[in-house]
């Protein structure tokens, strides 16, 4: 019965809707008329970034927004005091190892979803992104309307090269050269002190202790540092992986073994890898090792029996790479492998 009630509101209402559409179109056309790249005063230079985009950069940018962990790390290492950044990958805050060094830095959202308007309000000189920051062209496109947005390096590229690039973008080539020299010197000095640990097999594990453990293959930064030191990797962890980390079945827990295991926690470690609040510092790695002990086979690993499972800062060890992160990696290695730490 109700079905007989006349109702054709839809067609009648379409007129105001079309008006709205028309209004939108007019506003859209008006918007297309003006675009403005923002004022950059004298002393600019042209620069071509890692994706081939040609940019005009200030000679020595002061107001720097770093939208990824490696670029933030590099900027801080170079003494540039960046003004804003996003939360680290797999973490709710900025990377644990950078928190103190970066000081009181403005947060502009989470990795990959920066708050464009807030960044614009900070009026940056330069915005740093890389393969780990955002693949979303529409966001990059909007950001570059407010400041030159430099794509520093692709995912999985050599961290040292990315660091040199960042130094170049920030107009701090001299500081960059000094720091890379310092890194090389430090490598040589630690390498000389390795003693019987020279050429040892080093396993890098990322595990919250529950769920599946993951290991790092060779393309990330920490494995490259190990390589610089002449250290080797367990056979399962050699070569390039399909991605950031490689999950390991609990039945193949022997794939975690090596002469030493550097054990870091980061994220929930589950499938999908969403943002979690799991801290990535040394304390949480210790806690994770506590859980891992309950996993059958973990206490049978030769590194465990030898007392060679080292809790480390997961945010630094599994980082895509950064000068300060690698200093922490070197600290851990120097303390355990080169500090006269005997078996």
């Amino acid at each position: 019965m109700l079905l007989h009630r006349p109702n054709r509101s839809s067609a009648a209402l379409s007129r105001p809707f079309l008006l709205l559409l028309a209004l939108a179109a007019v506003l859209g056309l008006a918007a297309c008329g003006s675009s403005d790249a923002g004022g950059v005063e004298g002393g600019t230079r042209s620069y071509t970034d890692a994706r081939g985009t040609k940019l005009e950069l200030p000679a020595r940018p002061q107001r720097i927004v770093a939208l990824s962990e490696p670029t933030l790390d590099a900027a801080v290492a170079l003494g540039a005091k960046p003004i804003a950044t996003t939360a680290g990958r797999g973490q709710g805050t900025i990377a644990a190892y950078l928190q103190q060094r970066a000081g009181n830095i403005t947060s502009v959202g989470i990795l990959g979803q920066p708050n464009i308007e807030r960044i614009a309000a900070l009026r940056p000189d330069v915005i740093l992104i890389d393969g780990t920051a955002t693949p979303d062209d529409s966001i990059v496109d909007k950001l570059s309307k407010f400041a030159p947005t430099v794509f520093v390096s692709k995912n999985g590229a050599d961290w040292k090269q990315a660091f040199v690039q960042t130094a170049d973008v920030l107009g701090r080539q001299d500081e960059g050269k000094k720091l890379t020299q310092a890194y090389d010197d430090r490598i040589a000095s630690i390498r000389a002190k390795l003693g019987k640990n020279a050429g040892a097999e080093i396993s890098i594990v990322r595990w919250g202790g529950i769920g599946l453990p993951a290991v790092l293959k060779s393309e990330l930064a920490a494995p490259r540092v190990l390589n610089d030191l002449g250290l080797t990797r367990p056979s399962f962890q050699r070569g390039r992986g399909p991605g950031h980390t490689v999950p390991v079945s609990l039945e193949r827990i022997d794939a975690l073994d090596g002469d030493w295991i550097f054990f870091g926690a980061l994220g929930s470690g589950g499938a999908g890898g969403g943002v979690s609040e799991t801290p990535a510092d040394v304390a949480s790695a210790k806690k994770a090792i506590g859980y891992a002990k309950d996993t059958p086979g973990f206490t049978d690993l030769k590194a465990y029996k030898a007392g060679h499972v080292v809790p480390v800062d997961g945010s630094a060890w599994t980082s895509a790479g950064g000068y300060l992160a690698e200093q922490l990696v070197l600290d851990d290695i120097e303390r355990t492998l080169a500090g006269g730490a005997a078996r």
């Binding site: 939108a24 859209g28 918007a31 297309c32 990958r89 797999g90 989470i110 990795l111 990959g112 979803q113 920066p114 708050n115 464009i116 393969g131 780990t132 955002t134 693949p135 979303d136 529409s138 966001i139 496109d141 909007k142 995912n155 399909p242 991605g243 950031h244 980390t245 999950p247 994220g267 499938a271 999908g272 890898g273 969403g274 943002v275 895509a320």
Partner: peptide, 30 residues
């Protein structure tokens, strides 16, 4: 698919999967 890719890629895919209007411009509106 998300378990088969890197943490960064899967994180950005996840953000897409929740649905977001961040950075939407005329190239989306038109």
């Amino acid at each position: 698919l998300l378990t088969k890719v890197s943490l960064e890629t899967s994180q950005s895919a996840r953000l897409w999967l929740v649905g977001s209007l961040n950075g939407r411009g005329w190239e989306h509106v038109v």
